[in-house]
């Protein structure tokens, strides 16, 4: 049986490469100073979907919500083997918390009629790991979190191994289902040369700045990446963007993890003896 898989992918700033320059003076993060990348665990989710297609047949669609720049990760998904890609972009999505994000994504996924929805466990910028379970609730389907491996997929039944933090569980359920995938699940394949050649020129309408001629040309060549706004999704505005987000940011501080008064100790027997003596006197040890 062939399956229709939808993978949710997020473009994120590479928070692993954060440096002093990436912080603004007011403590907020200067996203422009960080490279934008494919959220790491979303690559594992994509790989899992592609493996389902490899063994059972079907289709893989990648969906990203974000600024037009997120077209980059959608192209990357096409290079790696996704069949189709959708950019959800709309100014009114701005300031969405996870509840609003999952509502908007649910409107898009509903249009795609998925058998299996795959998310990364967690995005490395917002770091909440909430969008997967919330999206499953909005879609009214079963969720299985922290998926490490698909054990069996047959007809409308799936059995997976999930990591429970202090061990594992093998569970079985009926489709449709939403899986959140962890980085231990697999090693994502790299872009295929053929897919790269084929999709190198794929663009979203936003990237073409509305040039009607260009849009038409790419559409005819099958290289126009789908782009949906909130009107197209028939989203209820009360659940989108700032209005749809119950959580608000009260304050942001950059982390200055500094100890008060660092004492340098000589790396000699005497120096170490003195330090240990101090720690005994102040009851830290002993």
């Amino acid at each position: 049986m062939a399956y229709n898989c939808v993978v949710l992918i997020k473009q994120v700033p590479d928070t692993k490469r954060i440096t002093g320059q990436a912080m603004n003076e007011d403590g907020t993060v200067n996203r422009a100073a960080l490279p934008a990348i494919f959220n790491p665990e979303d690559l594992n989710a994509l790989e899992m979907a592609l493996q389902i297609k490899d063994t059972c047949g079907g289709k893989v669609t990648a969906v990203a919500m974000g600024l037009p720049a997120a077209s980059d990760v959608l192209r990357e998904a096409l290079f790696r083997g996704a069949d189709d890609a959708v950019l959800v972009t709309d100014r009114r999505c701005a300031a969405s918390d996870t509840l609003a994000t999952s509502y908007i994504l649910s409107c898009a996924v509903k249009k795609l009629k998925a058998d299996i929805v795959l998310c990364g466990r967690q995005a490395i910028d917002g770091d909440t790991a909430q969008v997967g379970p919330q999206l499953a609730e909005k879609l009214g389907i079963t969720q299985i979190t922290y998926v490490e491996e698909i054990k069996e997929l047959k007809d409308d039944e799936i059995s997976v191994k999930r990591n429970t933090g202090n061990g594992w569980q093998q569970v079985k359920t009926k489709l449709p289902v939403l899986l959140t995938v962890i980085d231990e699940a697999n090693t994502p394949r790299v872009a295929g040369a053929k897919m790269l050649m084929k999709n190198k020129k794929a663009r979203t309408p936003a990237e073409l700045e509305g040039d009607a001629g260009k849009i038409k040309e790419l559409e005819q060549k099958g290289l126009l990446i789908k782009q949906w706004d909130l009107d197209f999704l028939e989203a209820d505005m009360q659940w989108c963007g700032r209005d749809g987000s119950p959580t608000k940011v009260h304050r942001i501080q950059s982390v200055v993890l500094a100890a008060k008064g660092t004492k340098q100790i000589e790396a000699t027997q005497d120096g170490l003896n003195d330090m240990i003596h101090e720690l005994i006197v102040d009851h830290t040890i002993g």
Partner: peptide, 23 residues
């Protein structure tokens, strides 16, 4: 914010339509 808490709380917050702060 255990594996169970992080599986349950977002699903519940979504159903209740309330905000949820992570971790």
């Amino acid at each position: 914010a255990t594996p169970t808490g992080r599986d349950l709380a977002p699903r519940l917050a979504s159903a209740v339509k309330a905000g949820l702060t992570a971790d």
